[in-house]
Design a protein around this nucleic acid. Sequence first.
DNA 1: TTATAAATGAAAATGATTATCATTAACAAT
DNA 2: ATTGTTAATGATAATCATTTTCATTTATAA
Lengths: 148, 148
Amino acid sequence: MHARHQWHRQFRANACRWTAPRESILDLLGRAKGHLSAKDIYAALYPSFPGLGLTTVYRTLELLHRLGIVQKVTSGDGQGRYELRSGQAKDHHHHLICTRCGRIVNYRDFVEEELELVRKTEEALAKKYDFVIQDHSIEFLGICGTCR
Amino acid sequence: MHARHQWHRQFRANACRWTAPRESILDLLGRAKGHLSAKDIYAALYPSFPGLGLTTVYRTLELLHRLGIVQKVTSGDGQGRYELRSGQAKDHHHHLICTRCGRIVNYRDFVEEELELVRKTEEALAKKYDFVIQDHSIEFLGICGTCR
DNA sequence: TTATAAATGAAAATGATTATCATTAACAAT
DNA sequence: ATTGTTAATGATAATCATTTTCATTTATAA
């Protein structure tokens, strides 16, 4: 599936240009199964795109995050990880994170049930604490089998 | 209320010593209303404890976290923040975080309702993904009134 | 009181991320 | 197709939180 046109359009609407680094980063995120860090992306793209700079990876990820195309996860070890956000409700999930190696597992168990609760909590909080709420995250932290 | 004896005992049980830096950091966390970063703590303690090193603050926080005395929150701006965990069920709460300034608000709305859901999710995940789950976090991310 | 291992603090090191700036390239208007 | 404007890039240096190192101090068990 190629959301490329969608992105291209969204970029134009925000006066952002469609460039080779951006395309290949989006392409990689689309192909990737899990969550990728900036360095993961840099390393994965290097063979086919040796000119790419790590700075550009960071900048692109920040742009994609700002445009809501990508979701950022920060718990775990000290580095941010990113995944494409599908927009499909069926793909809504939360995270199970290994605090030792940083591995992130997407889970979809009970998310249906969470939804209603999240919705009303979000509404109550926004009003009560004068926040514009942009996102929520539900995470379980622990140690994965490999790290034990 | 002085949980000092509790902590002292817990330290001894783990072959950790009861020292001046540790006592004053715990004391500060006990008095503090919100979440404190390592630098917050360092700065707050400096006047009465000029000898204290930032390194020790980090080390102490890590120890307290390892002993389960303190909870660590990492989203928001790039720095970790810590709060004493009370152990009282009534104090169970989640976080509303301003992604611009890092401010953390504790909320207790609907936590009761979350509890059951969290419990069964945790159990299912632990089994399904072979994780030893140590903690969970539910966060809402947004921009607070002051930052807008 | 003493021996020993843990804890400390100063300084340097690390690792992720961000700022700077000269150069390059996208693309709207011609 | 050409060009001018401006965003994007990449190399380098800077920043900022956190860790490591190591020589010195100190808590505490014996």
